[in-house]
């Protein structure tokens, strides 16, 4: 049943969000700490486990795949509802700060990826 997959996906999201909120409260921050990431982890675990086979195989799996495929359309809708006007009316300071942060962050991607790669190759050689 398609709905089993959708229900599993929903359960993962809600559980992850609850943990994210609790983590936020525990750390004293007004934000959900990694709720979505935790939910993704639950879904990865469930889809790699035998216990949940009935909820992720066959038709049930297509219920999850449908939402996965709807991801890009949803992102397009998300782009269409951004406050683009406010972003550009923030003035030059906002533009410079945003642009500079992006440039420096992009430049760091290959640097930090290398840390990870050297780490894994040493692990694999051990």
């Amino acid at each position: 049943m398609i709905v089993y997959g959708v229900a599993l996906l929903s359960a993962c999201l809600i559980l992850g969000m609850l943990i994210g909120e609790l983590l936020g409260v525990a750390l004293g921050v007004q934000a959900n700490v990694g709720g979505v990431g935790t939910a993704m982890l639950f879904l990865v675990l469930a889809s790699n486990s035998d216990k949940f086979k009935a909820l992720v195989d066959g038709a049930s799996g297509t219920g999850i795949q449908f939402w996965s495929a709807m991801y890009i359309p949803i992102v397009v809708a998300m782009a269409a509802r951004q406050n683009v006007v406010a972003a550009f009316e923030g003035g030059m300071l906002a533009v410079v700060a945003g642009v500079a942060a992006v440039i420096v962050s992009f430049a760091l991607v290959p640097v930090i990826s290398k840390i990870g790669n050297s780490g894994t190759t040493s692990e694999e050689s051990q």
Partner: peptide
């Protein structure tokens, strides 16, 4: 395009992700 649908679809993309890939980049 709101937060609820965005998060729902993002979580769905994790379907089919391999645990080993996640572990590989864990520290980085």
């Amino acid at each position: 395009g709101g937060g609820m649908m965005r998060d729902f679809a993002i979580v769905a993309t994790a379907f089919g992700v391999k645990l080993s890939e996640l572990k590989k980049a864990g520290l980085a």
